[in-house]
Design a protein around this nucleic acid. Sequence first.
DNA 1: TCAATAGTTCGTATATCCGGGACTATGGGA
DNA 2: TCCCATAGTCCCGGATATACGAACTATTGA
Lengths: 114, 114
Amino acid sequence: MRPLFHPTTDQITVEGILHALSDPVRAAIFAEIAGASCPMTCSAFLTIKDRDIPKSTLSQHFKALRDAGLIHSERSGVEMRNTSRCADVDKRFPGLLPAVLAAHARQRVMPKRR
Amino acid sequence: MRPLFHPTTDQITVEGILHALSDPVRAAIFAEIAGASCPMTCSAFLTIKDRDIPKSTLSQHFKALRDAGLIHSERSGVEMRNTSRCADVDKRFPGLLPAVLAAHARQRVMPKRR
DNA sequence: TCAATAGTTCGTATATCCGGGACTATGGGA
DNA sequence: TCCCATAGTCCCGGATATACGAACTATTGA
């Protein structure tokens, strides 16, 4: 099992952030982690947005968030403690995250007309 | 040739916007269109960011921006007039576009360390 | 009518994404 | 110490998306 990769603050890219957050499941996961007051495990998201996510898929989503620099993950015993890297991202791209999170929140309130 | 599709303002989604702008070429195209004072043609971007884009690829990029609701395109004679839909997007997701464009601009100034 | 220009569409090669199943790592009993 | 359960990761096949060359369409001008 290879060690977890985390980009440094100045290796974070806008493309990476936007790509990671352009997936609704990842965006939901990140929003929860960012809003939580303590680290969250991966398996806390096996069901999210009223649907089940296979754990292999979930693992890939976490890797995507990690690679983008959005979260920090560290093993703690048998599980993983995931925390957001909002501060790092905000240092590199001030205001980006709040705007994206606000947009996602707004969409949840006002879904697109069908 | 099928007619051009443009989503209505409330059909615009965050995922769509973020996905469209997570590609550096599309982000650059959109930034220029958004900053221009008059409509721009597609072929104005056959070279961008010091590289040549095949026109079939370029056409797909424009379609992606259009489908996301980021630009409006209309035929004018033999060419296409592309304008940004910043106002529409901003009505649906206030503050999102300025934040993303600012982040892209910042990255241009402070590229990631290599 | 013909040629030139601007974009689109199609076909194919390539890359990325999804998810099932096997695997690894850690911790808690008996 | 030896299992077993739990939390995640890795691998691989199928599905989906993306890139780009080549052929096509539409419009204008000569």
